[in-house]
Amino acid sequence: MSEVLACIDGSTTASAVCDYAVWASQRLQTSLTLLHVLDKTQYPQRSDLSGIIGLGTREHLLEELASVDQQHSKRALEQSHLILETAQARAIQAGISAPLMRQRHGSLVESLAAFEESIRLLVIGRHSATNDNVSEHVGSQLENVIRTVQRPALITCGDFLAPQSYLFAYDGSFTARKALQMVASSPLLQGLHCHLLMVGSDRTACDALLNEAAQVINTSAGEVTIAWREADVEPSIRTYQLQHKVDLLVMGAYGHSRIRQLLLGSTTSQLIASSICPLLILR
């Protein structure tokens, strides 16, 4: 695993994805690759027009239809290249010396699977209802990407803001401790203010676990704040984000608590949609 891979499309999220990918690449001191996927359902490379011959279609009309199909594919390729070139120029201006450009045909998940072994961090944008519909397949497949690709993923929302703090949703499980150790050993969030938040009914037990977690992350974080909440997980996280103006939410993709149910159950999309800041999902 050696690269930050940014999923770039033609929507309004592309700039933030590029900027967060640049930030991550510089923090991790690793290469940056910009990926644009031409979805095969939106940009067919060749249509099967042979079926209409039986309806008495003339040969020249069949040729015209084939030509239109080819022109459509050509325009899609040109648009894809322009999107990548624009993102590449933005990354270079931000200080990345040689960002790579990759263009793929197929579904987003299939394309990411092809690069999975080399991905250190995946950066992808979250689309909202107010976003334009250009290349909306990136947004619509977001949950599928998170469930399928076995690499850490940074999900962007809104404009780029270099993170100064992050909220780690902690549940005391083995996987949560492992995720916290990943954060502590990585340069990505080193020196930032870490907020450790735990949701549970037993405050005494939660405080004990939070203090243990604080010792783990204290060597990496610039400052550590621990917090306990008794309410439901999702509203507790959202309220804490708002109150403390947290720049980034960090969560493990697997666990054995209500947080696990929240991430892997039917409310996954709600969590992604409700967050007011980018999310870093750890595997």
Rank of each mutant, 00 (worst) to 15 (best):
S25M: 06
D19K: 01
H36A: 03
E64W: 03
Q79W: 08
S73F: 06
Q79R: 12
A76G: 08
V22I: 01
I96G: 03
A16K: 00
L32C: 04
L82H: 09
L38Q: 07
T57G: 14
L55V: 10
K40F: 07
I53D: 07
E59A: 05
A21P: 04
A66Q: 15
C18L: 03
Q29D: 06
S25F: 04
K74Y: 11
S31D: 13
L62I: 10
S25N: 03
P44F: 14
S25I: 03
Q93N: 10
L100N: 15
A24N: 01
L38A: 03
A66I: 11
E63K: 05
S80C: 07
G54H: 09
V17N: 00
D39F: 07
I96M: 10
R75A: 15
D19R: 01
D48Y: 14
Q29S: 07
Y43G: 02
E63H: 07
A14R: 00
A21D: 00
R27V: 02
Q42C: 08
V17D: 00
V68G: 04
L65S: 06
H60F: 15
L49T: 15
Q29K: 12
A76L: 11
D39G: 04
V68D: 14
S73C: 09
D19M: 02
S67C: 11
E64F: 07
H36T: 02
T30F: 00
G51W: 14
L38H: 04
A21E: 01
L34S: 02
L65H: 02
G56D: 09
A87G: 05
A21G: 04
L55E: 13
V22C: 01
I83C: 14
A14M: 00
L34Q: 04
A16S: 01
Q93T: 13
S11V: 01
L38F: 04
P44V: 15
T57R: 13
D39W: 06
L77A: 05
Q93S: 08
Q26N: 05
P44E: 14
A66F: 09
Q26E: 02
Q88K: 13
H72T: 14
Y20H: 02
A76N: 05
T41C: 06
L61Y: 10
G95S: 12
D69L: 11
S15N: 03
R46C: 06
A91C: 09
H60L: 14
